[in-house]
Design a protein around this nucleic acid. Structure first.
Lengths: 215, 215
DNA sequence: GTATCATATACCGTATACGATCCGAAGCTT
DNA sequence: AAGCTTCGGATCGTATACGGTATATGATAC
């Protein structure tokens, strides 16, 4: 796929991000840089560069001479993230549908297909594929900054999905909505897409809210 | 002001960002890491961490084994940045007005005051103070992610203001709008603020568009 | 005269090593 | 016994050093 050569820091960003999303590294106590670097078989320098990037993404925060901490989850942040997605993602996805090429279409179809398979088999790690699907839909919008912001928001929102929604198991409603959404997207029906994405995010937020008060 | 201790990387982010915004480092050929580090009296490691952060902000891009490049300006990006600000900044500023404390009020007033003085004296470097004023208005909104996104967008938009608008000299219209905006903000008139911010950003974008076609 | 290849140089990217800072435990004082 | 002070270990942050890669220059073949 990607023939482009990526340096170690860039690869570590993805690695460490996945670790944080998986909940492997616990929040609220510092990341041992030496230990993690040794475990990943690299040195501290590229790891620190990766952590610096992740801080900009909002996954970790750094305290001077204290190190990097995984940011803790909060209901307020969940609310904020989803409200931001509601403001940006519908338009971006609709615009992307208008710009999408045949390759983009193929990629979106393939992504939803794998998402379905993963959902059928086991409920674990669905978040990453869910994220990949939504990303495939808004990525061709041709607006690089919007894409980067949305990707960041997707990552942040995935943490909440993993913790609060994923344990509930297969979600037929979301499944259904994904297929409707893809259909409208492939048909380049901008207005319908905008409405569907908006509704889809809102419903996820509602589920999340309900789950959050139940804790 | 800030009693918090910041490590070298964090300070370098601001330093290098200012350099890029000032146009000191030219776009489209790589940043000499060793040279810049030596000039700033630091080593490469914290400089690279700062550059990694600035890449996440969208000011530079990195190519593997080629180094960091200042991202070039484009009319499309300008348009995108301002559209994003229009989607997010009015609501955030209105919300901030509702949450603002007495200290926030004092800070906003002070910021506009210095902006006025700077504008009177010389047209150079107004961008930074303009950015500080707008930031003072949306910062108290209590939504950290929104704030970080808006700050990033401010930085990106400032580049265009510096290049295309600042050379025109003092802008009475913007000046007037700032004072109206602050008045409504201090009065916590959310609806009025929202309208004013929207209009202010749109007008700046219009000026920018006109200037861009004149190149 | 042009194109291609080889060599050299400069630079980036990473590993190793050292100094600075912070947290925790032991000892002392009141 | 409780609180403050001091000391030690551990960890973070930075500087120095080295190997790998890309670009530029010059020579040679066609």
């Amino acid at each position: 796929m990607s023939l482009i050569i990526r340096n170690l820091s860039d690869q570590l960003v993805d690695l460490v991000r996945d670790r944080i999303l998986s909940g492997v590294v616990s929040s609220e106590h510092a990341i041992r840089q030496d230990a993690l670097a040794a475990e990943l078989g690299v040195s501290k320098i590229p790891l620190r560069e990766a952590l610096a990037r992740l801080e900009e993404e909002g996954l970790v925060r750094s305290q001077a001479n204290r190190g990097f901490f995984v940011r803790s989850l909060s209901a307020a942040e969940a609310q904020e993230v989803y409200e931001l997605r509601i403001k940006l993602e519908p338009d971006a996805t609709a615009l992307a549908a208008l710009h999408a090429t045949a390759d983009d279409h193929a990629h979106a179809i393939e992504t939803l297909d794998t998402l379905d398979h993963v959902t059928d088999e086991h409920g674990d790690g669905v978040g990453a594929f869910n994220r990949a699907f939504h990303r495939a839909l808004f990525r061709p919008c041709g607006q690089p900054i919007t894409v980067s912001i949305l990707e960041r928001l997707q990552v942040l929102s995935e943490r909440y999905v993993r913790v609060h929604l994923e344990p509930l198991g297969r979600d037929e409603r979301a499944n259904e909505e994904h297929h409707q959404l893809l259909e409208a997207w492939l048909a380049r029906d901008a207005d319908k897409i905008s409405v569907l994405v908006d509704a889809h995010i809102r419903k996820t937020l509602d589920d999340l809210r309900q789950q959050l008060v139940d804790d």
